[in-house]
Structure formats: structure tokens, C-alpha cells
């Protein structure tokens, strides 16, 4: 463990807290992409299969929190707050994301075992899972401030993993090229958003696309 990874994981937890807080206080999931949330649940379920055969207090606890909170968000979106979700603006074609991640996972896993292929699939899928959400923000041209905080915290999580990987590359004999490439792609996808978030939201203005 190092400070970058810990900070990244904390941002991930914060993003989930912001999302659930936004939905339960406003009793609405407007502005949140159901498709992105469904992809995240798929990411966590396929990546954390090792819960069944490995245990480490920190990691196992976090994995259960990520799967549980993700399932809870989907429950809120399909149950109590379903009337506030507008499928007409959540139209990103996720089949290409799932298909692309599946092809890359089958071609380049570290090992050709079901668990490793699913792990690789989850890494690639996570790198693009935010696209339906960003697409939705782009379509509507604006987002509630709390939604932008959520997207920022989620982006900061993987961005902070990058210095973690650099640190680990310098201090150990192993590295994980697959996670690094996917993590960099993931961070790049957020970069436009980070820029607008920094120039608008942090200076007290509404998040509106130019």
C-alpha cells in the first residue's frame, strides 16, 4: 500500500457516497446514467470473483462495499426512483463497449483461465464505463453540481492509481502493463471533463458545456 493507492481508493469511496447521497436526498436519479451504473456493477462482479478464494481484510472489505453499493444504486434506479430516470437521454450503445472489452480480454489475458479472462474484461470495461455518463452530460449540455462532483471523484480515483503504478514500478520487480494502459485510457477519457470541472465548477459557476 502507498499513499496514492490509498487516496485513489478513498476517492472511489467518496464518489459512491456522493452518488447515493445525491439520489437519496433529492429522491431522484436524474442526470445519472443507468447504463454506466450497470456497467460498473458488471465490472465489480467480474473483477472481484476472487472474493470466493482469497481473503485480505482491506481488499475484501472494499470489494464487498463496491459490489454492494453498486447493486444498491441499481436498485434505487430501477425501484424507488425509476420515474425520475429518462431512458431517452441515456442512449449510448454499450454493446460496443462490452464487445470490445470481451475481445481484448480473450486476446490478451495474463492467463487463459475463466477468472483471469473475466478480470481482464473488467479492467478494459472499467476504462470505458463512464462513457454513457459523459455522453449523457454532453447531450443535456449541463449537469447538476453534485453530479459533477461525483464524476470528478470517480475520475480522480483511477488518475491517482497512475502515480501508484509509477511508484510500484520503481520499487518492485513486477508491474502490470494491462492495468496501466487501461488506467491511462480511463484517465484520458476524463480529461475534458476535468478541464471543464476545474474552469467552471471550482470557480463557482454552473457546469455547462461551451
Amino acid at each position: 500500500m502507498n499513499i496514492f493507492r490509498l487516496a485513489g481508493d478513498l476517492f472511489h469511496l467518496i464518489s459512491i457516497f456522493i452518488l447515493i447521497h445525491k439520489m437519496t436526498t433529492s429522491k431522484s436519479c436524474s442526470g445519472i446514467s443507468f447504463k454506466s451504473q450497470a456497467l460498473y456493477l458488471l465490472v465489480y462482479v467480474t473483477r472481484y470473483l476472487d472474493l470466493f478464494w482469497t481473503f485480505a481484510l482491506y481488499n475484501s472489505t472494499m470489494k464487498i462495499i463496491f459490489i454492494g453499493s453498486s447493486a444498491y444504486v441499481l436498485h434505487l434506479m430501477t425501484g424507488p426512483f425509476k420515474p425520475t430516470h429518462d431512458p431517452n437521454i441515456d442512449t449510448f450503445k454499450v454493446r460496443y463497449l462490452i464487445g470490445g472489452a470481451a475481445i481484448l480480454a480473450l486476446l490478451f489475458p495474463y492467463k487463459w483461465t475463466p477468472a483471469e479472462v473475466l478480470w481482464t474484461f473488467s479492467i478494459w470495461l472499467e476504462s470505458v464505463a463512464i462513457l454513457p455518463q459523459l455522453f449523457m452530460v454532453q447531450r443535456t449540455g449541463a449537469a447538476e453540481t453534485i453530479t459533477t462532483h461525483y464524476i470528478f471523484a470517480l475520475g480522480a480515483y483511477r488518475a491517482l492509481y497512475i502515480p501508484n503504478w509509477i511508484y510500484r514500478y520503481l520499487t518492485s520487480t513486477f508491474w502490470d502493463p494491462l492495468s496501466i494502459i487501461a488506467g491511462v485510457i480511463q484517465t484520458v477519457l476524463y480529461s475534458d471533463f476535468f478541464y471543464i470541472y476545474y474552469t467552471k465548477v471550482l470557480q463557482g459557476r454552473k457546469f455547462e458545456l461551451p
Binding site: T54, E116, W175, S179
Partner: peptide, 10 residues
């Protein structure tokens, strides 16, 4: 350096 999956990350 060996390219392997870092098993201890989330």
C-alpha cells in the same frame, strides 16, 4: 521487470 497482474489492487 516481470509483467504480471498485481493481485493486491482494487
Amino acid at each position: 521487470k516481470e509483467a504480471v497482474k498485481l493481485h493486491d489492487e482494487l
